[in-house]
């Protein structure tokens, strides 16, 4: 899932400068699961903003809303009817959600209340770890099911570097060395020989390096004449 966390309150307040009334919109999918932008977080943030701006003497009225999936237009459509009264939309969706609202309601300012961090995995309650960078050319079959692109600080492809110590990455004492884990897994699976193959230079054109990415699936596309 997409993992995000809320921006500091003061940063959000500074984005809201000049606004009298805003609509805070949460999202019921990824950011609800990671406790960053669900119904509860929308409630707490809205209340905090009301109280804090009131104390500052320049109150911002914050109304609350939530949509099931902010990254898809049809879920956001019901918001349109009441938007006139707001100076801005404060999105508690991920970066995709914010942009969906901005595209859908071009006459409104849409402000991000969250920082979108990564595609990740809930390692334990309250802990999320990055698992995928969407490089567009998956190598997990070669690496024991552990991603070196997202989990190795140097995105290495040919084994642990000289900074791996006791299974820990030199960059951060709380991060496991991904290549140490890959080594162990490949040994367990009897695939260590693959570790000795020099993996060639990666073609990064499938990643963001290749420019803005888009997938077109003609088999599921709806022809123009059938679009209502």
């Amino acid at each position: 899932m997409i993992v995000a966390e809320q921006k500091p309150l003061n940063e959000i307040k500074s984005m809201l400068k000049g606004c009298k009334k805003v609509l805070a919109v949460g999202c019921g999918t990824c950011v609800t699961v990671c406790f960053a932008g669900g119904r509860q977080e929308v409630g707490v943030l809205s209340a905090s903003l009301r109280m804090s701006t009131d104390l500052d003497g320049d109150v911002v009225n914050v109304d609350e809303a939530i949509v099931q999936r902010q990254c898809e237009a049809e879920y956001n459509a019901p918001l349109e009817a009441g938007l006139d009264e707001y100076d801005a939309i404060l999105s508690l969706g991920c970066g995709v959600g914010v942009q969906s609202l901005a595209q859908q309601f071009p006459e409104k300012r849409v402000l991000p209340a969250l920082n979108t961090k990564f595609m990740g995995y809930p390692a334990e309650h309250g802990v999320w770890e990055e698992r995928c960078q969407g490089c567009g050319n998956c190598v997990l079959h070669l690496t024991g099911g552990i991603c070196p692109v997202s989990r190795c600080a140097k995105s290495l492809f040919n084994g642990p570097c000289g900074g791996s110590q006791a299974g820990i990455c030199e960059v951060d004492a709380t991060t496991e060395c991904a290549w140490h884990l890959i080594c162990e897994n490949q040994l367990k699976l009897g695939l260590f020989d693959e570790m000795m193959e020099v993996q060639p230079a990666k073609d990064w054109s499938s990643a963001r390096d290749g420019g803005h990415r888009r997938i077109i699936r003609e088999d599921v596309r709806i022809p123009d004449e059938e679009k209502a």
């Binding site: 040919n158 084994g159 642990p160 570097c161 000289g162 900074g163 791996s164 110590q165 006791a166 299974g167 060395c177 140490h180 080594c183 162990e184 570790m195 000795m196 020099v198």
Partner: peptide, 16 residues
């Protein structure tokens, strides 16, 4: 560095 057992293999791989 660790994994200690890996180190001679890594050197071999650099040669390859």
């Amino acid at each position: 560095a660790d994994p200690a057992e890996w180190r001679p293999y890594r050197l071999a791989k650099k040669g390859i």
